[in-house]
Design a protein around this nucleic acid. Structure first.
Lengths: 131, 131
DNA sequence: AATTATATATGATATTAACATATATGTACA
DNA sequence: TGTACATATATGTTAATATCATATATAATT
């Protein structure tokens, strides 16, 4: 079938002006936190806010933890000792530490790309103030 | 309705071991390249490979350019002068330059977060070699 | 008794990324 | 001449990820 191309096509979505969010940054952050000490979902929330940027969706966090467990990066068990609702406590595994190491290496490449862009930007706009 | 929570729920997808890709990094890269000189989709491809990482999907690139045009970050017109197929040449707008400035600021925050993770990693694993 | 904080989990949808294919023109070359 | 390849733009479809909302549960506070 011969088509005449129409101007655009894909239905228009909201175009965010946010840039620079790192894909799946939450996982390396979780692995690093669990490298220090075992913890549970809700407990990780505040620490992730500090290490991962402000916005960490709690639903996403729980699903990510389960998903990481399925891949063998962490293990979990219920902690029923304390008062309050039971907590599912996660521990990093040997595989998880390997993944973290790989993730750090990936992020170094990302860092290089970002700096490459900064350098290019400074070259094109030498008077631009560093915000 | 009272439910007993089932172990996990979300259907299992392939879990990539790739980390650190920056979301929508392609747009700041395009804007920087167009800050230097107007260009067309296919022509941007090689430059983006250098500045944006290896993998740039050509289909995504064309759609991104159209989408950026709809937002007024760039303008385009057909260039019919040359031999070969006509080219749609894109130029950055004043708005586009503002967006680029904001994107660079966003990426500086991202860069800080990544470095924060590096520092934390070095603290937990002081013997880790820098890959 | 109602609200808030802690705690885990799922439903539904929006957004983005990835892979594949269609269309179109010109050049090399066998 | 025909066919492979490079250039060039565009769309269809699906997979993966992010976001927003809601359900469940327990304990402390007001």
């Amino acid at each position: 079938m011969i088509l005449t191309y129409m101007y655009n096509t894909r239905s228009r979505h909201f175009r965010s002006r946010e840039f620079g969010a790192v894909e799946r940054f939450i996982e390396p952050c979780i692995l690093l936190l669990l490298s220090k000490t075992p913890s549970h979902g809700y407990g990780l929330l505040a620490d992730l806010a500090t290490h991962c940027g402000e916005k960490v969706d709690i639903g996403d966090l729980y699903r990510t933890l389960r998903s990481m467990e399925m891949d063998g990066w962490v293990t979990s068990k219920w902690d029923e000792k304390q008062g309050g609702r039971n907590k599912r406590v996660y521990k990093i595994t040997t595989d998880g530490r390997e993944i973290l190491k790989d993730a750090v290496a990936s992020l170094r490449k990302t860092d290089n790309l970002i700096h490459h862009l900064f350098t290019g930007y400074q070259k094109v706009f030498p008077d631009a103030k560093i915000v």
